[in-house]
């Protein structure tokens, strides 16, 4: 089955041109000196990269996005690791229902989540807007943490835990000394994936931003709707580099099969 099929190869190549071409084009245009996006660029400069720092808001909201992802991750880990552990370790009545609840933030449309969060967190529960953002982002990160940690635990041999207990370790001690060290890479990968999920999120944040409170994707969205210069292209390149780094680490930790297994 290994013989090459020329037609299929060309077709696939064109699919990749479609997928990656646009990203390549904005990367190249980000080095254009003029104020209009041109391809191929007629000159070379890093002015637009400098402009990222000069446009008020980008640096600010970049920080907000990072804090938000980190804080959300922390809470999602605190909630998600015990849940993933229990779901993999024990038999439950209604296990399917519980698993369903934990994946539901992926299934429910993001825009619907965003709207209900606005309506309930801010208006009904009277939470400060940053708290609303924080909880909203935690909700959408939780399924990713649980999914990745669960797949690590699925490969974990729980008799190791029994070995530790039989040697005198307590239940909690066993978890920290024996279970946690062995699912460490899964946890780190889960954090990275959840981080990207939160960092790139528009659907939730778009409802909970306003004057003075914004995240980077929302700031970019607003900027693009009003201006059309290579600043966003330059910023996109920066984000793509971050994405590539994250992908590299996730691949190292989990392998590509994480992405293809469903």
């Amino acid at each position: 089955m290994r013989e090459k099929h020329i037609g299929l190869g060309i077709f696939t190549f064109l699919v990749f041109v479609f997928l990656l071409g646009p990203l390549l084009i904005i990367s190249v245009t980000s080095f254009e000196q003029g104020t209009v996006l041109k391809f191929p660029p007629e000159s070379f400069s890093l002015d637009w990269y400098k402009n990222i720092f000069e446009v008020s808001g980008f640096l600010e909201t970049f920080k907000v996005s990072i804090y938000l992802s980190l804080a959300g991750n922390l809470l999602a880990l605190l909630i998600g690791i015990p849940a993933a552990y229990a779901l993999n370790r024990f038999d439950f009545k209604g296990k399917a229902l519980l698993e369903g609840i934990f994946v539901s933030p992926i299934i429910i449309p993001g825009i619907v989540l965003g709207f209900t969060f606005l309506r309930f967190f801010i208006t009904y529960y009277q939470l400060p807007i940053y708290a609303g953002l924080f909880i909203g982002h935690t909700v959408i990160m939780l399924p990713f943490i649980i999914r990745v940690v669960s797949s690590s635990l699925a490969n974990f041999d729980f008799s190791i835990e029994e070995a530790a207990v039989s040697l005198g370790a307590s239940r909690i001690g066993t978890f920290f000394k024996v279970v946690l060290p062995n699912i460490k890479s899964g946890i780190i990968a889960g954090v990275l994936i959840a981080f990207l999920e939160s960092f790139n999120n528009v659907d939730i944040s778009v409802f909970m931003t306003g004057p003075g409170v914004s995240t980077l994707p929302i700031e970019m969205l607003t900027y693009v709707q009003n201006y059309f210069d290579p600043t966003i292209a330059a910023l996109s390149v920066v984000l793509m580099i971050i994405t590539a780094l994250f992908m590299f680490f996730v691949e190292r930790l989990l392998g590509l099969s994480y992405f293809t297994k469903r």
Binding site: S159, I160, V165
Partner: peptide, 28 residues
């Protein structure tokens, strides 16, 4: 279990994969 002081040897060995032989044996 952890107060019984019985040694248990498992079918699949159940060694702690993140510890050296020394640390495995020293665990108890």
């Amino acid at each position: 279990v952890n107060k019984r002081n019985f040694g248990f040897v498992f079918q699949n060995y159940a060694l702690f994969p993140h510890m050296t032989v020394f640390d495995n044996v020293a665990f108890g």
